[in-house]
């Protein structure tokens, strides 16, 4: 495992530990309803502070059950995770295409078309609607390629 991957794994492990520890240590045991939402607790606190307060508006749509609600939350997370994964996958594919084109450049001398073709087609299916994606803007592309070539090498010397 590279040093980079190790650091990333460590970051994820600490996040997981932070989430699991309160459960493992039973920090919710003193509560009537352990690990309820903070917003529900705030509602309780409001009724304590002002017993006659009644919410004056109710949600237009309320998930009919806890199951449906958790499904919708999972949907929200899945949408976000999908877009993030798409972004990083696209970037990785482009990077590979670029380096392949660069390697090919030594041989046949016309790599540019190849790079753009492989970079452009997935961009057309981008998730954000109503916007034209032109990731092959001239200045940026050159900088990207340059940065990328020296990037990993620099990382390794850094480690």
């Amino acid at each position: 495992m590279s040093r980079n991957a190790k650091i990333n794994t460590l970051l994820l492990l600490v996040v997981a530990a932070l989430a699991v520890l309160p459960l493992a240590l039973g920090l919710g045991d003193h509560k009537e309803e352990p690990f309820a939402g903070a917003d529900a607790q705030a509602e309780t606190a409001i009724t304590e502070l002002k017993p006659d307060y009644k919410p004056w508006f109710s949600p237009l749509y309320e998930p009919p059950s806890g199951e449906v609600e958790s499904a919708l939350f999972a949907l929200q997370a899945a949408l976000g995770a999908g877009v993030l994964a798409y972004y990083f996958g696209l970037r990785r594919g482009r990077r590979q295409g670029e380096s392949r084109a660069l390697a090919g450049a030594a041989g046949n001398g016309s790599p540019a078309d190849d790079t753009q073709a492989s970079g452009d087609s997935p961009a057309d299916a981008a998730p954000a609607p109503g916007s034209v994606l032109r990731d092959d803007a001239p200045g940026r592309d050159a900088g990207d390629t340059a940065g990328r070539v020296s990037g990993p090498a620099g990382d390794r010397t850094g480690a």
Partner: peptide
């Protein structure tokens, strides 16, 4: 889009905390 997606993911995750609530 990716930045928005990050907010989408994180604000959907209800995580237990030291106070015994989420």
């Amino acid at each position: 889009g990716a930045s928005g997606a990050f907010t989408f993911v994180l604000s959907a995750l209800k995580i237990p905390s030291v106070t015994g609530s989420c």
